[in-house]
Amino acid sequence: MTNTETPPHRRPRPPSRQPLTPVNSVSSLTPHLFAPDAVRPLRAKEHFLKADTLVELHTHPWPQLTFSTRGVIRLSTEDGSYIVPPSRALWVPANMPHSITLIEDAELRTVYVHAWMAPAWEKCEVLEISPLLRALMLALDTTADGQGPVDSHAAQRERWIAPLLIDEVERATQIRIDVPLPSDKRLRQLCEAVLRAPDNRATLAERAQEIGASERTVARLFRNQMGMSWQQWRQQAVLAHALPLLARGMPVSQVAAASGYATDSAFCAMFKAATGQSPTSFQHKRKSATAAT
């Protein structure tokens, strides 16, 4: 089978380009110092992290909400990868291994939830953050156990906030765009390379060669493990990367270049075919929605 994806807008691939990897790796950011319990059913923490930082794979026995007050992050699990801009939060179920990559400098915030009061969601959910949900999350004390003075009213406030926050989480609009990841090690390596550098529009044949497989084999793995073609998966990855940039007001020309398109028109055609609207229309709707709130 020959790959038919050789778009005229594909950028020439730099011959010496190396895969991008996070320049700084940190451990799990001490979740054990913020364990929720019956007295404190919600626990919040915050960390300021630089772009290209990797928070290593970890897990804990309670669910969490992850978001950033500024900067875009990418949270990865065994099954998928989720782009999380400041307008969204990601629900991660208890006991689910996950890692976080900082796409930009970001103020990373996490809210841990006592398992008894959490929604019975078995997979990650990307949620639109309402003004009320944002205010509730930001109102929580972020002092770690045994580190510094704690607001004397923190536990009581957490118990008051908890039922309203959970109700707001369950009411939140769920965003269905995520990027599934395969179990096959070679195919996952290929997919991770795309997510690290979405502007690199190497063909499937070129990428297959990098992981030591044939184009035919990789195309078959995409169909069997992902239930979609390479072209469909890559479009999903590009959209997941582009939507947060557009939502933040980045010019379409810059988003197109960051997504690997040499021309705005080619990017706009892909975006409209996938979403039913143009990138500028999407931005205008986002601005109108923000103004309304």
Rank of each mutant, 00 (worst) to 15 (best):
T69M: 10
T69G: 12
V72R: 15
I73M: 15
L75H: 05
L75F: 01
E78R: 09
E78S: 09
D79G: 13
G80W: 00
G80S: 13
G80M: 01
S81F: 04
Y82W: 13
Y82D: 08
I83C: 07
V84F: 09
V84T: 08
P85T: 00
P86T: 03
P86H: 10
S87T: 10
R88I: 01
R88A: 12
A89G: 14
A89I: 04
W91E: 02
W91R: 05
W91C: 06
W91P: 08
W91A: 02
V92Y: 07
P93H: 10
N95S: 15
M96G: 00
P97I: 00
S99H: 07
I100F: 07
T101N: 07
T101G: 04
L102Q: 10
E104P: 03
D105R: 05
E107D: 11
E107F: 04
E107A: 10
L108N: 13
L108T: 00
R109V: 06
R109L: 14
T110N: 14
V111W: 08
V111E: 11
Y112Q: 09
V113E: 04
M117W: 03
A120F: 03
E122V: 08
K123S: 15
C124F: 00
C124M: 06
C124A: 14
C124D: 03
E125S: 06
V126T: 15
L127V: 09
E128T: 11
E128C: 03
I129H: 00
S130A: 14
S130C: 06
P131H: 05
L132M: 07
L132W: 02
L133I: 01
L133F: 05
L133N: 01
L133G: 06
R134A: 12
R134I: 00
A135F: 01
L136Y: 09
L136G: 06
L136S: 03
L136A: 13
L136D: 05
L138M: 14
L138Y: 04
D141L: 01
T142K: 13
T143K: 14
A144E: 11
A144F: 03
D145Q: 15
D145I: 04
Q147K: 10
P149C: 10
V150C: 06
D151M: 06
D151A: 11
S152G: 15
S152C: 02
S152I: 11
S152N: 10
H153A: 14
